[in-house]
Design a protein around this nucleic acid. Structure first.
Length: 756
DNA sequence: GTTGTCTGCCC
DNA sequence: ATTCTGC
DNA sequence: GCAGAATGGGCAGACAAC
């Protein structure tokens, strides 16, 4: 058994929360208790702002124009210009890969105004894929290809840029406009089987043997060996996108069949490598090394080098490095840098490619883009995220010499609350999904909690399941049982409390460029807490690194049913601008800390073939503990992370020779977890997890905490092999139960037994 | 009407 | 969510 | 340090199958 005593004791040391009232941040320096214990009076009665928001909102107008950063010309080494001048020698300027690419040179092949063949996009994807991992400068070349693709489209068929971008990110609409493809591996496999006369078994075998690294390659191989007499017309970018939209929009009876048939039609019409990318696109796993940040960079460069024509204005310029008005490197590089920053910021504030590209097509550049792509109520903003920190020492290094704050990290659901008006309130998730329908109760309570002079705002917060009778935070797992659609306030079974911690806009004024200290101050003035409904995240400010105080605050947060702490600078580098650094906050959780986390010794009893870069090895393992009483191995989780590439190879090599044709008789495994390969119980692994939860599929401590259910692990990851243990010496079922009961969010609540 | 499977989305 | 890796 | 790509548990909701 690995050390874990510390965590148990810490978790048992449940702190009774006092009834301390909150005070505004301006009047306090160190407040550790607040919120849930606010006064019970109706907020409306207490609502009286001494200093109204109107007076505290910034008097200076919000800057729209970004100050042009101090730009030093990199010319050659690291700056964007290094992508666009080097490496052209010997390359054909007709090739997308070539930095000197000029869209005009491809006019014969891609006539202006004609729909563009999907093979152009597919070809670019293939080139990019082939560059992946090919060493120095390969990422740069990938960006160049993408940029040049956009430049070409800009010249010949601008409306295809949006289609191409959506295809590249495997979506059909912005995240906040619910439009999901509703296609998964299962439906794709069915489509492939029927279409190419293959069986599911041969497809599985193809993947297991490494013959194909993913379903895209399966599709491609099947398509290649298919003889076609009559070829449907070539696919165009526009056609593929419209089919994707059609797939996303099909719903109701027989919709699965309809989706399958659309997929098959696309595959039949595909040529060359297209089938591979169509399938991957439907899986939302293009896996060619391009995600949104790279896409934004490529767009920025494309719209710097090439200028779209305007309806009644300047004509298009395909290559601003050429012609009479040509610009020098010294002029273009700063433009690229500013454009890239502006595009990133624009997408962060308005994550909508239609609008972003629309603005770029209008000719907006680094200095004017943000005038139209700005944070606004009703459109979710990209949220600030936090980087995991390995320990308090690391936190100290990062924050040394800066004023910072620690906030309790609540275990709930991120909620970005948009008050469009006092009557219209919307709620968005961490990933910009619209959750308004899920939380009518929150909307009501926010309405009642707004200070009088607030008519619009955007608030960042966490929604946490909350026991209104016992005034206690409930586990995340309780929150997940809430319904999501057609929810009415009357039949809500899982109540929540809102813990607010940031504020990005008030009364039309963006606050994203204000430091956290200012934003928090304003937040506290626009929202009135009410017990168990709305409050502020508990925080404590620090002006110096004091490891003991941070540790103590961390312990308090865990005793208070939280996951740990969020650590944020207050003044320096403390704006709300994920475009600049998406992981600008730090998170400190007990399971990151050596000796404070539950670490568990388990036995690998099954394995699953890896996909993509894991193909050719096992990508994940099925892990079990040994239950002495029942003399059987009971599963607790699968593990697919924590392995170095070397580990993956070692494990594969080892377990290849310890396979079993079927499960051992003393394996207690749910059918839904059936691994690709069964393993002999012959090794012990130490793994780590954040929490334990009641599991519908895992069998450890089966029936002990809930009828017909076992206990599973949340966020499991591999740590190391324990050569000093035998499988029978792995963690026992009774220890799993102890760990489950020791969790601060479970102990002392009614949920401790059989409530699941 | 019930049950099972699949998908997307929370973490 | 966590984690590892190439650049 | 960023960006990307592997992978986890578990829930509701939508459909399909029975």
């Amino acid at each position: 058994m690995a050390p874990r005593k510390g965590s148990l004791e810490a978790a048992f040391a449940r702190k009774e929360k006092g009834d301390t009232l909150t005070t505004p941040p301006s009047k306090q320096s160190q407040v550790a208790t607040n919120g849930a214990d606010g006064t019970p009076e109706a907020p409306a009665k207490r609502r009286r702002l001494e200093k109204g928001v109107a007076q505290t909102t910034p008097t200076k107008p919000e800057k729209v124009l970004e100050k042009v950063p101090e730009v030093t010309l990199h010319s050659g080494e690291t700056g964007p210009w290094s992508l666009w001048h080097g490496g052209s020698a010997g390359k054909d300027a007709k090739e997308l890969q070539c930095p000197a690419f000029d869209p005009k040179l491809r006019e014969a092949e891609f006539p202006v105004g004609k729909p563009v063949s999907f093979s152009l996009l597919s070809g670019a994807l293939l080139e990019i894929e082939e560059l992946k991992g090919s060493g120095k400068g390969s990422r740069k070349t990938m960006t160049v290809i993408l940029s040049n693709l956009f430049r070409l489209l800009m010249h010949v068929q601008p409306q295809d840029i949006i289609a191409a971008v959506y295809i590249l990110i495997n979506k059909v609409a912005p995240d906040y406009e619910a439009a999901e493809l509703g296609v998964g591996d299962s439906i794709i496999i069915k489509a492939l089987c029927e279409n190419f006369g293959r069986s599911e078994a041969t497809i599985k075998h193809s993947l297991a043997s490494g013959e194909a690294k993913d379903l895209g390659e399966v599709a491609l191989q099947s398509r290649m060996s298919q003889k076609m007499l009559m070829m449907p017309p070539k696919l165009t970018i526009a056609k593929v996108f419209s089919e994707m939209k059609a797939i996303a929009h099909s719903a109701g009876k027989e919709s699965q069949k309809a989706k399958k048939e659309k997929i098959q039609k696309l595959l039949v019409a595909s040529r060359g490598e297209e089938a591979k990318f169509i399938v991957r696109m439907l899986q939302a796993k293009l896996r060619i090394g391009i995600q949104i940040p790279t896409l934004l960079q490529a767009l920025a460069y494309a719209f710097t080098l090439t200028k779209p024509g305007q309806p009644s204005g300047p004509a298009a310029v395909t290559d601003r490095r050429k012609g009479q008005a040509k610009l020098s490197a010294a002029e273009l590089e700063p433009q690229m840098i500013v454009m890239e920053a502006a595009v990133r910021q624009a997408f962060s504030e308005l994550p909508n490619f239609d609008k972003l590209i629309g603005a770029l097509m209008e000719g907006r550049d680094g200095s004017s883009l943000l005038e139209v792509c700005r944070i606004s109520v009703g459109v979710p903003v990209k949220p600030m995220l936090a980087k995991p920190s390995k320990g308090i020492a690391e936190v100290g290094e990062r924050l040394a010499g800066k004023r910072f704050t620690g906030e309790w990290k609540y275990d709930g659901e991120r909620a970005q609350i948009h008050v469009l008006s006092r009557d219209v309130i919307q709620i968005y998730s961490r990933n910009s999904e619209n959750m308004t329908e899920k939380y009518p109760d929150v909307i009501e309570v926010v309405k009642q909690s707004l200070a009088e002079d607030v008519h619009s705002c955007i608030i960042d917060s966490e929604l946490v399941a909350f026991d209104q009778v016992n005034k206690k935070i409930l586990p995340f797992q309780v929150l997940t049982t809430r319904g999501r659609k057609n929810i009415t306030v009357e039949d809500i079974k899982v109540n929540v409390c809102l813990f607010a911690f940031d504020c990005m806009l008030i009364n039309g004024q963006p606050l994203v460029k204000e430091p956290l200290e200012v934003r928090r101050d304003k937040l506290w003035k626009i929202l009135w807490p009410s017990e168990g409904k709305v409050t502020f995240a508990v925080y404590r400010n620090f002006s110096d690194i004091n490891e003991e105080e941070i540790q103590a605050f961390l312990d308090e947060s865990i005793a208070g049913s939280c996951e740990g702490l969020m650590l944020k600078t207050l003044t320096e580098n403390a704006t709300y601008e994920p475009s600049k650094r998406s992981l600008n906050w730090l998170k400190l959780k007990k399971d990151y800390l050596e000796g404070m986390a539950d670490s568990i010794d388990v036995v690998p009893i099954g394995a699953y073939y890896g996909k993509g870069k894991r193909s050719g090895a096992y990508g994940a393992y099925l892990l079990a503990i040994y239950d002495q009483e029942n003399e059987e191995f009971q599963t607790v989780c699968k593990a697919g992370t924590g392995f170095s590439d070397e580990d993956l190879v070692t494990h594969y090599g080892f377990f290849k020779t310890h396979q079993r044709p079927c499960a051992e008789t003393n394996y207690n495994v749910n059918d839904k977890l059936k691994p690709d390969v069964w393993l002999e119980p012959c090794q012990v692994w130490e793994i780590r997890a954040a929490d334990l939860s009641i599991s519908p599929v895992h069998t450890s401590a089966f029936g002990v905490k809930a009828d017909g259910k076992g206990i599973g692990l949340r966020f499991p990851r591999f740590l190391r092999i324990r050569d000093d243990k035998t499988p029978e010496e792995s963690t026992g079922a009774e220890q799993i139960v102890e760990m489950f009961e020791a969790q601060a969010s479970v102990s002392g609540t009614a949920a401790a037994d059989d409530d699941f």
